[in-house]
Simulated assay, not measured.
Amino acid sequence: MVVGVSDSPGSARALALAGLGDRIRRLRVARGLDQGELAERAALDVAHLVNVEQGDATPSLDVLAQLATALDVGLSQLFTDGKPGPAAMVLRGNEVPTVDTDGMALQVLTPRAVIPGLYAARYRISPTSEGVRPVKHEGHDWLYVLSGQLHVDFEQGATTLRAGDSVSFSARVPHRLSALGGAPAEFLAVGATLLASPRGEV
Rank of each mutant, 00 (worst) to 15 (best):
M1K: 02
V2P: 00
V3I: 06
G4S: 05
S6T: 12
S6H: 01
S6K: 03
D7T: 08
S11I: 05
S11G: 11
A12V: 02
A14W: 08
A14K: 06
L15F: 10
L17I: 02
I24H: 05
I24L: 07
R25S: 13
R28P: 10
A30L: 11
R31H: 11
D34Y: 10
G36P: 02
E37D: 11
A39C: 02
A39P: 02
E40W: 05
A43K: 12
L44F: 05
L44K: 04
D45A: 11
D45M: 06
V46Y: 09
H48R: 11
N51F: 07
G55S: 01
G55T: 00
A57L: 04
P59Q: 13
L61A: 05
D62Y: 05
L64H: 07
L64A: 09
Q66Y: 03
L67K: 00
L67F: 04
A70L: 11
L71P: 00
L71Q: 11
L75R: 05
S76Q: 09
Q77F: 09
Q77W: 15
L78P: 05
F79C: 07
G82F: 09
K83C: 07
G85K: 05
P86Y: 11
N94D: 14
N94W: 05
P97S: 11
T98R: 04
T98H: 02
D102A: 13
M104H: 00
A105D: 00
L106F: 08
R112K: 06
V114A: 14
V114F: 08
V114P: 00
V114Y: 10
I115K: 06
G117F: 12
A121L: 06
A121M: 10
R124P: 00
I125M: 10
I125W: 06
V132T: 01
V132E: 04
P134I: 07
H137R: 10
D141M: 01
L143E: 13
L143S: 13
Y144F: 15
Y144P: 02
V152E: 09
D153I: 06
Q156G: 06
A158E: 13
T159S: 11
A163R: 06
G164Y: 08
S166Q: 14
V167Y: 07
S168R: 00
S168V: 04
A171D: 01
A171G: 04
P174M: 10
P174V: 02
R176K: 13
R176S: 13
G181I: 09
A183K: 14
F187V: 04
L188K: 09
L188R: 11
A189H: 01
A189K: 01
V190K: 06
G191W: 08
A192V: 13
L194K: 12
L194Q: 14
S197N: 15
R199Y: 12
R199T: 15
